[in-house]
Write a protein that binds this DNA or RNA. Structure first.
Lengths: 221, 221
DNA sequence: ATTTCCCTAAAAATCGATTTTTTTATCAAT
DNA sequence: ATTGATAAAAAAATCGATTTTTAGGGAAAT
């Protein structure tokens, strides 16, 4: 039995994940029109699974689908960044409150584990994607106990949108250190169930990335 | 020049809209597995546009996509209904507050127009779909001035999910009259910019439909 | 009688080719 | 030179057929 790297998955799902990642990390220019045949060869799939992935990404909000004119990477607009950041702050603060109320010891364990992985990833500043993944998982773990699947779904979607803007900015060790100190502090506040303190810090935490992205976004176009 | 009924639209988008409507109004049984070839003939399209529509609907949350096992209508779960209703209340109250702060006279005009259409639709109780459409537009008009496209997007998505549960219940003239009185009252509160009063009424408004759907949902499975 | 394995039928996913629509380029007329 | 129509080229959308995977039934073995 050969365990291929794509065992149990459809080609469509694989392209979806690969394209999603590439869109968030900024592989394509904002506003760029996607050349479908080029994508076909790049991701090594046929037309059908590729188009299915593109349709899913458009429904998710990482692509825009124009009437009979194919798919386009959404433009970066300062106004939209502010919308995303503001809403993300509100929704994550909601989820945080609920997670602090519902969270059990299993939640605490998962949070500590995620925080540890994030610290370790921080020791290897050159491996950016590992840190990004650990970062995403940490935030998921922090809010995971909120008890509302739909809230978590929307927060995840906003997080992806936010990251598209945040990752425009070049890596900055100083800011990353500050962010990681905030992550550690959030864990302490979570264990202490300090809702007010954690909400304030989460707000500050998002605001910091927001400001960095903002500077980059207003400079770009 | 012949103006076909589908001018300027792709087959894919048409099936998407038609299927979305049928899923919300409950044409398919909850938990049912969709027979793709049957859908093909029913909606009169080929495989490719149909699959693209199914993929979009899965990303939107109106279908579940299992690994290599096709598409399934999500089950109706009381727990999920409560999640949807609770989150919808919170997000709509957020948007309502912002709409009351940002809304200009154009917003007031659109709201009055939507309210009028809804009253007229209410006079024809047998034309259910017309009322449904007017109802959806009224709620969109009420919150449309909130200034946050992403918040409106999520609210629309939750509204669709909520309606899937709400429409399980058989039409009830008494409840519909109560709902429409609340709509009229919401317009008055909007014009008066009474945020507290409107939030309270919107909460009551959603709670009423929630309770009706709840009774139907717990009885069904 | 129950479990396991294989075989067959059905369904899903993918591919290659065709059709339709949009975009680009060309050329005449004002 | 600009505009407007037309034709060629490119791209998107769709179709029909093929390949792959799953679901179900029945025989062999325990």
């Amino acid at each position: 039995m050969t365990t291929s790297p794509s065992a149990g998955t459809t080609a469509s799902s694989q392209v979806f994940e690969a394209l999603k990642h590439d869109l968030i990390r900024g592989r394509f220019a904002a506003g760029e029109k996607l050349a479908i045949s080029a994508l076909k060869t790049h991701y090594g799939v046929g037309l059908s699974p590729l188009r299915e992935a593109l349709n899913r990404l458009a429904a998710y909000g990482l692509l825009e689908q124009e009437n009979q004119r194919g798919f386009r990477v959404p433009a970066m607009r300062l106004e939209e960044l502010d919308d995303i950041a503001g809403l993300r702050t509100q929704l994550e603060c909601m989820a945080l409150t609920q997670a602090f109320q519902n969270g059990d010891s299993e939640w605490e364990s998962q949070l500590l584990a995620a925080a540890h992985r994030l610290r370790r990833a921080d020791e290897q500043p050159e491996r950016i994607e590992e840190w990004e993944q650990a970062h995403l998982r940490f935030h998921r773990a922090l809010l995971g106990a909120c008890g509302s699947p739909w809230l978590l779904r929307f927060i995840g979607q906003l997080h992806d949108q936010f990251d598209r803007y945040r990752r425009m900015a070049p890596p900055n060790p100083g800011i990353r250190t500050t962010l990681d100190e905030q992550h550690a502090a959030l864990v302490e506040l979570a264990l202490a169930r300090d809702i007010q303190g954690a909400r304030a810090l989460l707000d500050t935490h998002i605001r910091l990335s927001h400001e960095v992205a903002r500077g980059c976004c207003s400079a770009a176009p």
